[in-house]
């Protein structure tokens, strides 16, 4: 073997004569990649980009779908200020995001920690717990929820056994939103699988070192697991927060599209739908949608800013 000193000194490469290349020169592989990307690019352009920018224009118009849009400037945005239904939907959505996302992530992390302890049949449990994530936003599950929390549902039948005459949890404004939060928490499978993958990446040596230093289970969790899992927590937090802001199906099915009782499940996206497809007020609906997009953008940006103080990457 040659040592570093014995290796011949590499000569600087002889520069080839300068040739002019076009600004967007692509080699054959690059061209091939673009060929294969064409369907996706067309799909993105026609199904996402064009409607996206069309809705931005429509947000500044009075547009009832049936007639051509008329420019109305900031009127749609000004209208939101005096719109009680708008504020009701904002309140419902914020409560849902603030309560359901931490609960769901906490539950997902708890289950991931349990499954990470080397249970036999892990694959089965992982699949079983992931299943609600696949079904949770479906119409079938929303209907199932009605059967569980309805006036004559499973919960009230259980309460009846101990002499409690319960009312429909879905028709009480104080509990209707809570049932939807429970539904969201129940769909913890997706973040759980991601947490599980994150937990598997934490080196065992760190736990062994912590044990040697006298750290108990709780201190290992607080000082080893959590810090090293923060990028995963952050990732899940971003995804679940955005998803929670966009919740629609469950509220639509459970309330029959009304957002009732008494606006207690009037999610923001449900209100956008009502304005666009029931009231035919597509200009206003577009403005509402862009406000939601802006809010999600701001919240996500704040998450990223705050992440500097609590998310630890391996290279920190």
């Amino acid at each position: 073997m040659l040592t570093d000193q014995e290796r011949p000194v590499e000569q600087p490469p002889v520069e080839a004569p300068a040739t002019k290349r076009p600004a967007f020169h692509l080699n054959r592989q690059g061209r091939a990649a673009h060929v294969f990307l064409i369907p996706w690019q067309l799909g993105f352009l026609l199904i996402t980009a064009v409607p996206l920018f069309a809705s931005l224009y429509l947000a500044f118009t009075d547009y009832d779908i049936l007639n051509p849009p008329e420019w109305s400037g900031l009127e749609n945005f000004r209208r939101m200020v005096d719109d009680d239904q708008f504020w009701a939907s904002v309140k419902v959505t914020l409560v849902y995001v603030v309560v359901s996302v931490p609960l769901q992530l906490g539950f997902a992390l708890l289950l991931a920690l349990i499954l990470d302890r080397g249970l036999s049949g892990l694959a089965f449990y992982r699949s079983a717990f992931y299943l609600p994530s696949l079904l949770g936003t479906s119409v079938a599950i929303a209907i199932l929820w009605r059967e569980i929390f309805g006036d004559a549902g499973l919960i009230n039948k259980g309460l009846a056994l101990i002499g409690i005459d319960g009312e429909s949890w879905l028709q009480n404004p104080k509990t209707a939103l809570a049932t939807l939060i429970v539904l969201n928490v129940w769909t913890f499978g997706s973040p759980m699988v991601i947490f599980l993958a994150g937990l598997r990446q934490i080196p065992d040596e760190l736990y062994e070192a912590a044990k040697v230093d006298g750290a108990g289970v709780w201190r290992q969790f607080a000082h080893v697991t959590v810090p090293l899992l923060t990028p995963i927590i952050f990732f899940n937090l971003i995804l679940q927060t955005i998803g929670a802001f966009q919740t629609f199906t469950q509220a639509h099915i459970i309330s029959g599209g009304t957002g009732g009782p008494a606006n207690s499940t009037l999610f923001y996206t449900l209100y956008v739908y009502q304005q666009g497809f029931v009231a035919f007020d597509m200009g206003y609906a577009s403005a509402l949608a862009w406000v939601l997009m802006a809010v999600i953008g701001v919240v996500t940006a704040l998450h990223f800013l705050a992440s500097k103080y609590w998310v630890f990457y391996g290279d920190n």
Binding site: R146, G150, D151, E167, S168, L170, Q171, N172, S255, G256, T258, G260, P261
Partner: peptide
Amino acid sequence: LSLSEQEGMG
């Protein structure tokens, strides 16, 4: 019927 008994309006 109460709203609970009939599971909402309609």
